[in-house]
Each structure stands twice: as structure tokens, then as C-alpha cells.
């Protein structure tokens, strides 16, 4: 047992490449969140709409996103769309898959936040002479923001962890992809992936800590 010499020095020499990969990981996670939030708001509006033609596809999106593996969703974007002659690059497929997943989960978060604010709040705003849009923006939105903030940050951490799946569709520029690339050349699997694990941990913790700081600063009431 353990007649294996760990070669940490060699692994550490790859740190600059890995950090570059970590940047790509963050880039994908942030992009997928920004697009995901926009799509989720549209989905939430569609799911609350009275038209069946809007409600049904939005509901299908949310249920598929929540009831199938994220890896399946990425495979769909990468291999599945091939049936339509659409061939996405690993980057685009990964981004599409994670965004699809984010939007599905965030839609429910936003819908929950909307439901949690009593309608009397908007009416109180209106009674002070605010317009409907103004009351929504100045009374409802800030309160919804608070309720949805931490779940959204949780989803961001999930998005970061999900980017690691890109390697299964040939992604080789994000943190996991870079690590796998180095691994196939040096075969120091344990050292390299342990280093990657530390980086993922630090990124995830930084996001979590940042979110808590922002929440503490913003939500004083």
C-alpha cells in the first residue's frame, strides 16, 4: 500500500494553467447565471399567465430541468441538437445546458418570491399615489429580491460545480478540462485533481462568503 510517490511540486507547476481554467469556469458560470435569470423571469411570467399556450411550454421546461440530470441536459445540447444539424461547440453546449438548468430552478425561486409578498403591499404603494409599475419597482421588487437572493446565490454555486461536466463533451479550457488535459499528458491524476478540488472549493466558498456579506450589507431591515 502507498508505494506511490506523490509529486506535488510537478502539480504546482501547472497552477498558472489551472488558474486560467478557473477563469473560464467562472466565465461560464456567470454567463449562465445572467442569461438564466433573464430566462427564469420570462418563464415565471409565462407560468403565471392565464394563457395555456404560454403556461404549458414554461411548465415543461421547468419540470424537465428539475427532473433530469444536468449531464443529460448538456448531452442534449451537444449530441441531441445534432439531429437538427445543429452542432454546438463544447463551450456553447455546456453553456446552453447549464443555462437551461439554471432557468428551470430559478423560475421556481422567483415564483415563490412573488407569492410571498402580500398583495396589500402593492396596494399600499398605490394608495400613496404610485403608478402600478412604480409600486412594483419600488415596493414589490426590493422585497422579492431579498427573498430570492440567497437561493439565487446557491444556484450560482451549483452552476460553478456543474461547469465541471463540460469535460464529458470535450471541453478542455475550463478548470476540469485543463486538469484532464494535463492529466492525460502527465498521469499525475491524484495530485492534479486534488489541486483542482482545492480551487473549486475556494471559488465556491468565495461566492458563498461574498453572498453573505452582500446580504448582510443590503438587507438591514
Amino acid at each position: 500500500m502507498f508505494n506511490y510517490t506523490f509529486q506535488w511540486r510537478q502539480a504546482f507547476r501547472t497552477l498558472p494553467q489551472m488558474l486560467e481554467g478557473a477563469l473560464v469556469t467562472m466565465e461560464i458560470a456567470i454567463l449562465s447565471m445572467v442569461i438564466g435569470v433573464v430566462v427564469a423571469v420570462l418563464l415565471a411570467v409565462a407560468r403565471n399567465s392565464s394563457s395555456r399556450w404560454l403556461r404549458a411550454p414554461a411548465t415543461a421546461w421547468v419540470e424537465v430541468a428539475r427532473n433530469t440530470p444536468a449531464l443529460f441536459q448538456i448531452y442534449m445540447a451537444h449530441f441531441g441538437l445534432g439531429s437538427f444539424g445543429i452542432h454546438l461547440s463544447p463551450f456553447a453546449a455546456l453553456l446552453a445546458g447549464i443555462t437551461f438548468n439554471n432557468a428551470g430552478y430559478l423560475c421556481e425561486t422567483f415564483r415563490g418570491a412573488l407569492r410571498a409578498i402580500p398583495a396589500t403591499q402593492a396596494r399600499a404603494g398605490r394608495s400613496l399615489g404610485m403608478g402600478a409599475a412604480q409600486a412594483f419597482r419600488m415596493i414589490m421588487l426590493p422585497q422579492m429580491f431579498r427573498i430570492a437572493f440567497l437561493p439565487t446565490m446557491n444556484q450560482t454555486v451549483w452552476a460553478i460545480l456543474m461547469t465541471s461536466l463540460g469535460v464529458t463533451v470535450g471541453m478542455n479550457t475550463d478548470l476540469t478540462g485543463v486538469t484532464q488535459d494535463l492529466n492525460s499528458r502527465t498521469f499525475r491524476t491524484f495530485e492534479l485533481f486534488a489541486l483542482a478540488a482545492v480551487l473549486y472549493y475556494l471559488i465556491a466558498k468565495a461566492v458563498g462568503l461574498g453572498a453573505r456579506l452582500v446580504a448582510w450589507r443590503l438587507f438591514r431591515y
Binding site: 476540469t176 485533481f193 478540488a197 473549486y200 472549493y201 465556491a204
Partner: peptide, 13 residues
Amino acid sequence: SVPLLIQLILGNA
């Protein structure tokens, strides 16, 4: 806080 895929690769290694 670490992706499951990395955990699997590490565990296997």
C-alpha cells in the same frame, strides 16, 4: 463544495 465529477476521479485515483 467540490464538483462530484472531481470527487469521483480523485476517489478512483
